[in-house]
Amino acid sequence: MKLNLTILSLVLVSVVSYGLYQLSYEVQKLEKDLGSLNENIVENKETIRILKAEWTYQNRPDVLQALAAKYLPLLLIAPYQVAGITDVPDQTIDGKLGDVPVPRHNPRRDYSEPEAIPAGPIQLATFSKSGSLQ
């Protein structure tokens, strides 16, 4: 009986201490993770701040003006180019097909399925007449 009790308590002590240490290690690991996550957040925030400053720097009005002058065919807006929504004339569609504008050329009409690659051993790539790679 006495022996049993001793063994039982020994087992209990070892189990509890094992559990306790396991828990302690786990907490330590989680804390380490949390620390590194926080560090990451700080780092990311810092990066975002720098990127925002960079974005603003790249979007300076004089830079945009120079780029627009170079690439866009835009001039100052003349007064006649400004209109309100009420200035747009009403257009009634009476449902006849002829009145609905359709594109004169439908690109899909001329579309044909590309020729299937013939089954068989490896083929050398050649250019077909239509320009696609076969």
Partner: peptide, 25 residues
């Protein structure tokens, strides 16, 4: 130590982070 961990600075830093989410900046 078993109860409070090793009590280093990382932990205190994370505590303040939780109370104020935008700690950086």
């Amino acid at each position: 130590l078993a109860i409070s961990g090793d009590g280093n600075s990382e932990r205190t830093a994370s505590d303040t982070d939780m109370s104020r989410p935008s700690a950086y900046g």
